[in-house]
């Protein structure tokens, strides 16, 4: 732990609302402790801005534990900043040096319109889930939880896919703004589990159709999504989605 405080220069995207044009604006934050989280530095900056009667920077955040998926900053050219497997809220200032200039932008994708400053609209993800990212089981219909054994390897794979927090870093990182990693994580989770079996084919088809309708790009297998994913979701899932989708396309009766 270091007690030496830093001065950090920021270039932050400011945009009044969806319709307006944005620009990068310069800020300087003094007395940044290395133990601060990246968002806490923004808190400090915003407090100063309010004190100066200027408008603070709008950004999304909620749990600040790296699990809710709400925080979403594109920091120095990388979603969630320079570390691997970490969300913006878990990024701490000890990853930066005194005098650094940090460029902070919102997720950029046609399917994620900017609402204000660094805040974007990610409801496209909800609509993709609504199109099939579930098991159709009404409350009360379930059998005993241990009736269907699921081997540990398979359960672990399903869990690894289910760890997706829906933050959209994959879309932000992808040069095509593709949502394949997100969609594949959900399709994989349910395809790996016996509970997902009955709707396996329709799920892959309808989720991909919804993903396309939302205006996300195609996957060109660059792997940037997985490299930037704070939950390190594997590219295996994308291959599995391709398999699921093709299999369903070829074999599901019309």
């Amino acid at each position: 732990m270091s007690n030496e405080n830093m001065t950090i220069h920021l270039k932050v995207w400011k945009q009044k609302n969806t319709g307006s044009k944005g620009h990068l604006e310069d800020y300087t934050v003094n007395n940044v402790s290395p133990d601060m989280s990246f968002l806490e530095m923004f808190d400090v900056l915003n407090e100063e801005l309010i004190h100066e009667n200027k408008e603070p920077i709008a950004f999304d955040h909620d749990c600040r534990e790296g699990i809710c998926g709400m925080c979403s900053m594109y920091i120095n050219g990388r979603p969630h900043g320079p570390l691997e497997g970490v969300t913006t809220c878990q990024l701490h200032m000890r990853s930066f040096k005194d005098g650094d200039t940090i460029v902070v932008e919102p997720w950029r994708a046609a399917a994620f319109p900017v609402i204000k400053d660094l805040v974007v609209d990610r409801t496209a993800f909800d609509r993709i889930i609504a199109s099939g990212g579930y098991v159709s089981i009404n409350t009360g219909n379930a059998q005993d939880a241990n009736n269907l054994p699921i081997g540990k390897e398979r359960a672990d794979l399903a869990f690894a896919a289910a760890a997706c927090i829906g933050c959209g870093a994959c879309v932000a990182a992808c040069k095509n703004a593709s949502a394949m990693l997100f969609v594949s994580a959900k399709v994989s989770q349910l395809a790996l589990l016996p509970q997902g079996e009955p709707e396996r084919q329709s799920r892959a088809l309808s989720m991909v159709a919804q993903m396309d309708a939302e205006g996300f790009g195609s996957c060109t297998n660059t792997g940037a999504c997985s490299a930037e994913c704070p939950k390190e979701i594997s590219l295996d899932n994308i291959a599995r989605l391709n398999r699921e989708f093709l299999g369903a396309s070829l074999s599901k009766p019309e």
């Binding site: 089981i137 219909n141 379930a142 081997g151 540990k152 589990l193």
Partner: peptide
Amino acid sequence: ANIIDQCVAQGVPFARDYGGML
């Protein structure tokens, strides 16, 4: 107990042992 049943049926990936049990 019904909650666990319901969640497992939804595809919640609870920890399991090698035999596939919760």
